[in-house]
Simulated assay, not measured.
Amino acid sequence: MRLARLQQLLTLVLLATALGWAGWMASAGRPVLAVVCALLVLGFHALVLGLEMAVAARVNRDDPAPAASGLQRLRAWWGEVLTAPVVFCWRQPFFPDAVPDDPGAPGRRGVVLVHGFICNRGLWTPWLRRLRARGIPFVAVNLEPVFGSIDRYAAVIEQAVRQLEQHTGCAPVLVGHSMGGLAIRAWMRDFDGDRRVHRVLTIGTPHRGTVLARNARTTNARQMRRDSAWLQQLASQEPAQRYRRFTCFYGHCDNVVFPASTATLPGADNRHVSATAHVRMAFHREVVNEVLAWLEAPASSCESDMAGATPPTR
């Protein structure tokens, strides 16, 4: 996978830079400065995340989402500082296929997992292990080309949905993180999704775009600009009742999708997640438990319903 190789290279360059700078300072008889230099290189992402958090806090001041306290933003920042390197420097570049897909067997509802921008299926590794332990069928896609149009990802999702349909005979649950939620909406538009999906859950998806993409240059990132022409066209092609099939998780500490309420849809089951940043939101307990509830809810039939699926019993 192209993205995995790119992230491998970036990770190795980062480590080499940190070690080289530290070694240079140590050879110059400055061991304390050597440690400081290495930490600055390895912890540079923390500064970037802090800047994103500050911008998001400013933009969110006029947003209807619940206001975040300073302590909540600090908790969200620290959680993302710890989570981001594990995802982008370990799971995705070196072990994207640590848990192979398991399309399951007839009679058990499965799930299609769709990652976001600059990610691959390695994002979902903790999910995949949990799903496998519970015997839940799953397929986690890779959206490529990495910087292509979101419209092109619909065909990738269609392959995954067909695989689960053929193996289980059930309409699957679809879960999308960030841009992945938009790719799912594109799939529903192009492949009769209302008839074939049981439930859609999105996590920090810029349904109405994000301020962070204002100066974006790649095709898919430009499509995620606030109220972009692409987003407006997508919404115009969707029937109003479609959003009743969606559960949208959003948060006031999302450092990528802001204003916060742009990650919601009218008529959907919109769930606010507090004190949690963008990537870490994909592993939030409330999010994971909600997906499992839809997958494990008893049902008399695996078939989807045009009127919308019945919420799981908790």
Rank of each mutant, 00 (worst) to 15 (best):
L9A: 15
L9I: 14
L14S: 08
L15D: 00
L15Y: 03
A22R: 09
W24A: 12
G29E: 10
L33C: 03
A34W: 05
C37D: 06
V41Y: 11
A56E: 05
R58S: 09
R58L: 15
D62Q: 11
P64E: 03
E80R: 08
A84M: 13
V86Y: 15
V87S: 01
V87Y: 00
W90E: 00
G107A: 14
R108Q: 10
V114W: 00
H115P: 14
N120M: 05
G122T: 06
L123N: 04
W124E: 03
P126V: 06
P126L: 08
W127N: 04
E144M: 09
F147A: 15
F147M: 12
A154C: 01
V156Q: 08
V161R: 06
R162I: 02
Q166I: 00
Q166E: 14
T168V: 08
C170Y: 06
A171L: 09
A171S: 14
A171M: 10
M179H: 01
A183G: 03
A183V: 07
I184M: 10
M188P: 03
D192P: 04
T205D: 04
H207Y: 03
N215A: 15
N215T: 12
N215I: 10
A221T: 09
Q223V: 09
Q223L: 13
A229S: 13
S236G: 12
E238D: 07
R244C: 11
Y250S: 13
D254K: 09
D254H: 08
V256R: 03
F258N: 01
A260D: 07
A260H: 08
P266C: 11
G267R: 04
D269Q: 13
V273K: 04
V273F: 04
R280C: 10
R285I: 05
N289M: 14
A293E: 09
E296L: 15
S304G: 12
M306R: 13
A309N: 00
P311R: 09
P311Y: 02
